[in-house]
Amino acid sequence: MKLVIIDYGTGNIKSIQLAFKRLGVDAILTSNISAIQSADRIIFPGVGEASSAMRMLKSKKLDCIIPNLTQPVLGICLGMQLMCNYTEEGETEGLGIFDVKVRHFNKVVKVPQIGWNTINNLKSELFVGINENEYMYSVHSYYAENCKETIANSVYHIGFSAALHKNNFYGVQFHPEKSSAKGEQLLKNFMKL
């Protein structure tokens, strides 16, 4: 099975590749369109700022390619946020896969949220073997609102989408590659979808 991690210039994707390596899966880092289109599974990562990440996607023409992919795609963190309609970060239009807006946390809590938070109302094969209220590791200042595509909730002052799903597209706000054994379980589940 060919796994591709989309490499469009945002930092910190090495850790995703290494997480799959621990699971015995060789992941290819690439921004090559035909390599992405021919993969069996695709990870859409993202760390950093939304508007500049979106610019980098556009400069590689990936903004047109990603929404038309038909194989399972997993967006992680900013990757998931860019799959939404719109994010308040840099007032950025997203890829419009998930019909939801991404907002900034209210400053009644510390921003960014950094650390291990519980996920619940799990509604997807992505969570096979993962219990309600399992802890996952997140680092983020923006969140996707709850919506009909939400398949896991989390709460940080306000309730938000910890994961989203529509057709072949999945997104998680947390970092499964850094969320210990249960995060690795999620990555394994993704490979089996």
């Binding site: 930092g11 290494l18 850094k178 969320s179």
Partner: peptide
């Protein structure tokens, strides 16, 4: 990074964009 599945921070002697790039790439 190859061996652990939780986050880790690296500090000490980091003073430029290149230093940070290098550590993140590792």
């Amino acid at each position: 990074a190859e061996h652990i599945n939780i986050p880790f921070t690296v500090g000490g002697g980091i003073s430029s964009i290149d230093d940070v790039s290098e550590m993140l790439n590792c």
